[in-house]
């Protein structure tokens, strides 16, 4: 106890590292091998490459990195990538909630098929989705031709990017909300009904608040996926600098110019911004949960 005040950090380090190196005591044999494989797999194939990404930009110096990131074209691309991703995830929220509701609450012929359809954007290769969406929403496509007379242009512009991102993001909302909705106890809804609440009041005051954390998680997942999305976007985007050029595309442009550090700087900026936004969503998530206790 006496040593605690004088050398607490040293003690903590001594206590910590030997335990890290030692295998946990467990009755189930085989930790060593499993952990060895895991560590090799993880560090060689993910951690070391990511370390290269984190390290590379700084050969430009801090000012150089900031210079790259604040270039108007890069700023425009980052703004577009994050803005379109947020917008797409927001658009997905009501659609995803509605879909989850119908799939879990109603029994009707074709329900399973509808359920399976939700996973299409997960399974469809992004390049395939990209050219298909382009074919549909182009001015001469099935859907694009419908709105063309109204003067609306869907493909080859920011609108097309949002459409593609909403497409890849939808399943994330449905699949996170669905299990929560299914496990929701009907007793709470019944109680609300016996207390004289209308159906609408029951849904908005009893059901939705319980879904809020899942909706937020789904939103975060859809957003995270959309920010980095490439394949389904570049065909429909039009890729005009300053207007409809997404950040991942800029990375490939830099790479083609052999500007590795610049490419890495943009990549790192994307990761950092995404991390900050997701942390913010995480805080909000915690706040919702906490507020309900």
């Amino acid at each position: 106890m006496a040593a605690a005040s004088t050398g607490s950090t040293v003690l903590a380090a001594e206590g910590f590292f030997p335990r890290l190196r030692l295998a946990p005591r467990s009755a189930i044999p085989g930790f060593g091998l499993g952990f060895g494989i895991t560590l090799a797999w993880l560090s060689l194939l993910v951690l070391i490459p990511l370390a290269a990404l984190v390290a590379r930009p700084w050969e430009l110096g801090v000012a150089g990195v900031l210079g790259v990131v604040t270039e108007p074209r890069v700023m425009a691309a980052l703004r577009l990538s994050f803005g379109a991703a947020l917008l797409a995830a927001a658009i997905d929220l009501p659609g995803g909630l509605l879909t989850a509701w119908v799939i879990t609450r109603y029994r009707f012929p074709g329900r399973r098929l509808l359920d399976g359809m939700v996973d299409l954007p997960f399974a469809l290769p992004t390049a395939v989705a990209g050219i298909a969406l382009t074919a549909l929403y182009a001015p001469n496509g099935w859907l694009g031709a419908l709105v063309e007379p109204l003067g609306l242009k869907l493909a080859f512009g920011p609108a097309g990017i949002v459409i593609a991102l909403a497409f890849v993001g939808l399943p994330f909302i449905v699949r996170t909300v669905e299990p929560v909705l299914r496990d929701l106890s009907p007793a709470a809804e019944e109680a609300a009904a016996t207390l004289g609440a209308t159906r609408l009041q029951t849904v908005t005051r009893v059901v939705l608040p319980q879904l809020a954390p899942a909706l937020l998680t789904g939103f975060a997942l859809a957003f995270a996926r959309a920010v980095g999305e490439y394949g389904s976007v570049i065909f429909i985007a039009g890729n005009m600098p300053m207007v409809s050029e997404i950040a991942p595309l800029l990375i490939t442009v830099r790479l083609e110019q052999f500007d590795y550090a610049g490419a890495a700087a943009i990549g790192l900026a994307m990761l950092v911004i995404a991390f900050l936004l997701l942390s913010l969503l995480g805080l909000l998530h915690r706040h919702i949960r906490w507020a309900r206790l």
Binding site: R56, A224, G228, Y230, G267
Partner: peptide, 20 residues
């Protein structure tokens, strides 16, 4: 850490190998 690659853009997933 195991889930990390899901949070990374595919383009960055290629980029890291080019950097190496």
């Amino acid at each position: 850490l195991v889930e990390l690659p899901f949070a990374v853009s595919p383009v960055i997933s290629g980029l890291v190998w080019v950097l190496l």
